[in-house]
């Protein structure tokens, strides 16, 4: 039988922790397209993703989950729509210690929301840092509806990443139930 594949997209602003998030749970070394950063203004880390990150979790012989990380810099946003095609859901990573990126995170969230009506959630990364904003304050700053999940996260911790992925999958199940009951009522 042919192996089925599904994908989850991890997006968010530059340096929000997308690559690290995928690296924490991927069973293969993350296939990364990182390049050395040359722009002085962006030199808060050595390298950045320019096309995508790619991680993999084999579920069983018939099913594989791919994790795609998008490039965070706006000038590579032509990749976003390509990566979002057919996604099961998406995660918006936000660096809790950098409120200056919240506006961009909000914009990325809206962009992906418009690509496809798939479930999503927000992961408030770097919550182990002393400078991290409280998740409730981030919800207000990001103007998130109470129905949208925003979860505390530390991308380098496997347990935290697992929780985020599981919450997204629970959300997908809920949406499926809602869609099914909606169509049953309509019938």
């Amino acid at each position: 039988m042919q192996t089925q594949t599904v994908k989850i997209v991890v997006t968010g602003p530059f340096n929000s922790g997308k690559t690290e998030f995928i690296r924490s749970v991927s069973e293969i070394d993350v296939v990364s397209t990182e390049k050395k950063i040359t722009a002085e203004a962006e030199k808060i880390k050595e390298s950045t993703t320019v096309a995508m990150d790619f991680g993999r979790i084999t579920v069983d012989d018939d099913l594989v989950l791919f994790l795609f990380g998008t490039p965070g810099q706006k000038r590579f946003d032509f990749m976003w729509e390509i990566l979002s095609e057919g996604m099961l859901g998406f995660i918006v990573m936000v660096d809790s210690t950098r409120p200056e990126t919240f506006k961009e995170a909000r914009s990325i969230l809206e962009t992906f929301r418009a690509y496809a009506p798939t479930p999503y959630l927000v992961a408030a990364n770097k919550q182990d840092s002393i400078d991290a904003w409280d998740v409730d304050d981030m919800r207000v700053a990001l103007r998130l509806d109470p129905s949208i999940k925003i979860l505390p996260c530390v991308a380098k911790k496997k347990s935290a990443v697992k929780t985020v992925l599981l919450e997204l999958l629970y959300g997908i199940l809920e949406e499926m139930d809602a869609a099914q009951s909606g169509s049953a009522e309509g019938a």
Partner: peptide, 20 residues
Amino acid sequence: IEIVRPGGMPLRLPEKMFPT
């Protein structure tokens, strides 16, 4: 106001998201 997906809930999930 807030921005929402058009059509209200529940969502109609895109067909392409699942292989089946």
